[in-house]
Write a protein that binds this DNA or RNA. Structure first.
Lengths: 230, 230
DNA sequence: ACAAAAGTGTTTGTTGTACACCCATGC
DNA sequence: GCATGGGTGTACAACAAACACTTTTGT
């Protein structure tokens, strides 16, 4: 095996996580405050160096857990950033991962290389280190276009949710109001929801019906894609 | 700056190119025969190590040009593969790029690390090295889904082409026959083509009208996306 | 005259879009 | 009884899908 070895100068490789969450009607993203140089004290996406012989997604998950405490998050690869100059320490390639969580259920707590871990509304982000603002732009635009051809929401909503909550999710991501009746017709045609035959409790108005996603159908639609020109 | 330096063990990074081309009614992909170990003499996608301080896409373009002679190809990032064990030399991360060319206009010639460079029909590929078969599967599925929400063909067809050629392109990629009239109506509605007011010459039957893409409209549609449930 | 591919419309079903009111519940 | 959000239908326009014949040209 050693006969195949080589020793080119190597860029270093990190895996970073862009985690979106929904709170009220606000799209949020998870940031950490860096504990160490460079850019100590600045805000960044959770992430860090890929260890030798560590799968990329595993590195992303590990760093996320270490720095924010979030675990069992589904991560999807977003894009790989490798422009020289993006990291003052030298040529660094960052494989960015993208995840969605039901924000209420995940209160992050800082750990490891992070001083703090905190949700920020996407339209009120602090300045970010490196080229993380560019990475964020790619992530947000991916989220917006994903919504158009894949089911989304499973990860962003509580297990049981109302149609209005689902609609607000789409309105938040797409940044435009949707017609209630048309939205419901469209969702209905997808055969994606299970009517739980339950209702909200303790709301100061008529209680809405609760639904959950049909996981199997959700996965099918995710693979097949659909058209949601809503 | 040196105070920020670090010295983790680093995986190495390569950039590989999956280039599709269309010949007759066959989708083809460009492979090289490796000149050096490991897997000397086996077929692989063109690609190689990313140099220090080299942008990723630049590395992909450089390797493609070095190994096959193809230049000025538009490359789009496909996916990054980083599973340990995929390369016997040690942990290697491959950023895969994806490109389309009008096959007739690009006859590859081997150079550099390649013994040969050659087009292969996608349904008759030789065994590939490393995890290149998996990479190929991702590339092909990306091509198939891309077709549904972005214009395609600009890069795969000659500058002047007939509607039938365009339809055959879609039929080849989607692997299903399409209705001529419906296809033409749909293309027409996209406002994507420029009627060149020219006709084919030297065909042994009625000459078809020639079209070209409206580049501006093509780019707009690429950004906006569309729905081509054809 | 015939072979080969170009070119062209209509009908029917489905989906998109715009739009406004009554219903149930908690206070 | 009123405030709050829940829930529902219809009409019109656009698009999808199925389908067959005439036209042009070279040989």
């Amino acid at each position: 095996m050693m006969s195949f070895a080589y020793d080119y100068p190597r860029p270093s490789v990190t895996a970073d996580c862009i985690i979106f969450g929904l709170a009220n009607r606000q799209l949020n993203v998870l940031l950490i405050e860096r504990k160490s140089e460079p850019f100590k004290g600045c805000w960044a996406f959770p992430g860090g160096f890929v260890a030798e012989n560590e799968p990329l997604q595993a590195a992303a998950k590990r760093e996320l857990a270490e720095e924010t405490g979030l675990e069992n998050i589904f991560l999807e690869q977003l894009y790989t950033f490798g422009n020289p100059g993006r990291d003052p320490r030298g040529h660094t390639i960052t494989v960015a991962y993208f995840g969605l969580v039901a924000l209420n259920e995940y209160q992050p707590h800082a750990a490891s290389d992070a001083v703090r871990a905190q949700w920020f509304a996407v339209n009120a982000l602090p300045p970010l280190v490196f080229d993380h603002e560019q990475i964020f732009a790619v992530a947000l635009s991916r989220l917006k276009s994903k919504v158009r051809y894949q089911p989304i929401g499973f990860e962003l909503l509580p297990k049981k949710f109302t149609l209005t909550q689902l609609q607000q999710l789409y309105e938040t991501i797409l940044e435009k109001p949707l017609d209630k009746r048309n939205f419901r017709k469209k969702i209905d045609r997808l055969n994606l929801l299970v009517d739980l035959k339950e209702r909200q409790t303790e709301v100061p108005h008529r209680a809405a019906r609760l639904f959950s996603f049909d996981e199997k159908r959700y996965l099918t639609l995710k693979e097949e894609g659909f058209n949601f020109e809503i």
